[in-house]
Nucleic acid binder design. Structure first.
Length: 283
DNA sequence: AGGCAGGCTTTTA
DNA sequence: TAAAAGCCTGCC
């Protein structure tokens, strides 16, 4: 089907934003998007037009929500005060098109436990290995195989050796414990959406391997709490360098997480570019 | 009590 | 070899 999107929407920026680890950019610039047990091919076809491999019914029941198309991101950007927050203003302008996907709470729980102390390529690899190890085998609409994100039961049933083979390192125990908690009914990740943000975070942090940063990521990307504000190494640097007097969280509630994403992507992209330049000079 | 150092698996650049 | 979308433990 063909879809018109007039609000901010940029597949490349979403793919690079560090919230989804099962998107694959194909040679022609289109994307193969894995989400839970589903697969979608999506391609830009002009200024605001996109072609999607799904039909209207699946789009309405799954993908419209997944891409958070009911939210007006242009309006969220418009709330930035350029006089008081020039850095944020620039970041949002540069990274316009990022959206906060509505991904599965369980999937984000495991994904962000895996993410700790690792870079994005390594996260992708482990998530993919875990899916291959325990996710249901499927075939997409082009006849290409893929693995669904595994259920909690499937992950909980994995042996320590199998988890180790997913290159999880010391996170094996964390992943297994979280899966066991969900499989055993002690934790229902979806029900966390019913709790106030702070309480959801506190509940998540009862799991070993889930600290404040991972809990914030799960809240933002898995529970769609747009006010969650993950403080990773990059954001800490930004706050030190750009906001020595303190970052105005109150001014930007309840969308702090969206602004965090603009700043994170902008700063990381800028530093990466610097690295490339100095590398080129060295060569 | 709350802040800090050190360790942890593995990959990436 | 250092750093990577960190967390846990032990120490003070």
């Amino acid at each position: 089907m063909v879809l018109e999107i007039t609000d901010d929407f940029d597949l490349d920026r979403i793919a690079d934003s560090g919230q989804c680890f099962r998107w694959e950019r194909l040679a022609d610039g289109s994307y193969r998007i894995l989400h839970g047990e589903l697969c979608l091919y999506m391609e830009r076809r002009g200024e605001t037009a996109y072609s999607l491999s799904c039909g209207e019914a699946e789009f309405e029941s799954v993908w419209r929500g997944y891409f958070d198309l009911a939210e007006d991101y242009s309006a969220i950007r418009g709330r930035i005060d350029p006089a008081r927050d020039p850095f944020l203003q620039t970041a949002a302008e540069q990274e316009k098109g990022i959206r906060i996907l509505r991904q599965g709470a369980w999937e984000m729980l495991i994904t962000f436990i895996i993410s700790q102390n690792r870079n994005i390529p390594a996260i992708r690899r482990s998530v993919e290995l875990l899916c291959e190890m325990s996710g249901e085998e499927k075939t997409d609409c082009r006849g290409r195989p893929y693995h669904a994100f595994p259920t909690a039961d499937a992950v909980a049933a994995l042996s320590e050796a199998q988890l180790r083979d997913c290159r999880l390192g010391y996170r094996c125990r964390f992943v297994h414990e979280a899966a066991a908690a969900v499989a055993g009914g002690k934790l229902d990740p979806d029900r966390l959406r019913d709790l106030p943000g702070e309480e959801a975070c506190r509940t998540l942090m009862e799991l070993s391997g889930v600290g404040i940063k991972v809990a914030s990521c799960i809240s933002l990307f898995g529970l769609h709490d747009l006010d969650a504000f993950p403080r990773d190494v990059w954001i800490k640097r930004i706050l030190e360098n750009e906001y020595p007097e303190g970052y105005p969280l109150e001014r930007y509630a309840p969308y702090n997480g969206v602004y965090q994403q603009y700043m994170f992507a902008y700063y990381r992209g800028r530093e990466r570019k610097k690295g490339e330049i100095s590398h080129a000079e060295a060569v």
